[in-house]
Computed example of a mutant assay.
Amino acid sequence: MAKRASHSDNNSALHLEREASQGQARGELIARLRDQPFSILEREMLSLQKRLITMSPSMLDRDELRRRIAEDIYFEAVHRLCPWKEFSRALRRLERLGFGDVERRAFVAGHFVMWASKSQVCIDEAWKMLDDAERRAQALPRDSLQRENISRFIARVRAEHGESGAPVL
């Protein structure tokens, strides 16, 4: 029994070490490409993904890495206020890969609203995505810290970027 726990602890430590290493590589690349065009950042992030995939032993780890890279690309598109063509590509990639949890979905949707408000593009679609994330958050237990965080974030987005329908939570 102790041998299994030890093996599990080793796997867990290796997993955390691998995630930290991959996160550092992603962060360094984003910092290095901060002044480069978005298309270069996107291409280099996808190239990094190919290299890092080889370090991921399981399909679950590889899928999570793809989601993290897609999130990095998406949030850079938001930050850089990319035009719809680039922004939508990043958003669709992330939607295709799926969201790790309701909180990530809400965070992505809220930033879509922020981007849409500034760009004056796809505003209705952004609010629908935020409303959907808010509805999904209702499935979480009422006393859940995650539900509370989502609710606060969405309330802040609504207050800063205008209201589109009544809040669901």
Rank of each mutant, 00 (worst) to 15 (best):
L91D: 00
L81R: 11
S119F: 08
K50R: 10
D143F: 12
P141S: 00
G98T: 02
L48A: 00
E42M: 03
R136K: 12
A116I: 07
R62W: 02
V121G: 02
I123S: 13
R96V: 10
C122M: 14
P141W: 08
K50Y: 03
L16K: 15
S144N: 09
D35L: 13
A20I: 01
A2N: 08
C82K: 03
R92E: 14
A77G: 01
S58D: 02
D72P: 04
D61C: 01
H79R: 15
K50F: 00
A126F: 03
R136A: 13
S164T: 09
I30V: 15
S164V: 08
N11S: 02
Q120P: 00
S144G: 03
K118R: 12
D124E: 12
M1D: 12
V121Q: 08
E134N: 02
L97D: 07
S39A: 11
I53K: 08
R34W: 12
E17W: 15
R32M: 12
E125R: 14
E134Y: 01
L29C: 14
Y74W: 10
A90K: 05
F153E: 04
A106N: 00
A20G: 09
P167C: 02
D101W: 02
V113S: 15
H161N: 14
C82L: 06
G23P: 08
R152H: 08
E95A: 09
R89E: 13
D35T: 14
A77I: 01
A133R: 00
K50G: 11
F75M: 00
V102C: 08
D131L: 10
D101N: 14
L81K: 07
G165R: 03
E103G: 09
L48K: 00
E64N: 07
F153P: 06
R93I: 00
L16I: 11
R92N: 11
E134S: 05
A31W: 04
I73A: 02
L130N: 13
P83I: 01
I40C: 04
F38M: 11
M114W: 03
E95V: 04
C122N: 14
P141F: 09
R80I: 01
T54E: 07
D72W: 05
Y74V: 01
E71T: 05
P167L: 07
P167F: 05
P167N: 01
F75E: 02
M45E: 07
R26P: 06
F153C: 00
L65R: 09
P37W: 06
S6T: 12
R18E: 05
A159Y: 02
L145T: 13
S144D: 09
L140I: 07
G100H: 04
K3P: 04
V102T: 15
H111T: 03
H161V: 05
L14M: 07
L130E: 09
A109N: 05
F112C: 04
A166L: 15
P83E: 10
D131C: 05
M59G: 06
C122G: 10
M45R: 02
R26E: 13
K128Y: 09
E95M: 07
Q24K: 15
L14H: 07
S119T: 06
L145C: 07
R136G: 11
G165V: 03
R147S: 04
D35A: 13
D143Y: 05
S56A: 11
S56Q: 13
F107I: 10
H161R: 11
D124P: 00
G165Y: 09
A137R: 03
H7A: 06
A155D: 10
Q22G: 06
A155V: 03
Q138W: 04
E19C: 12
A25F: 11
S117W: 06
A109T: 02
V102D: 10
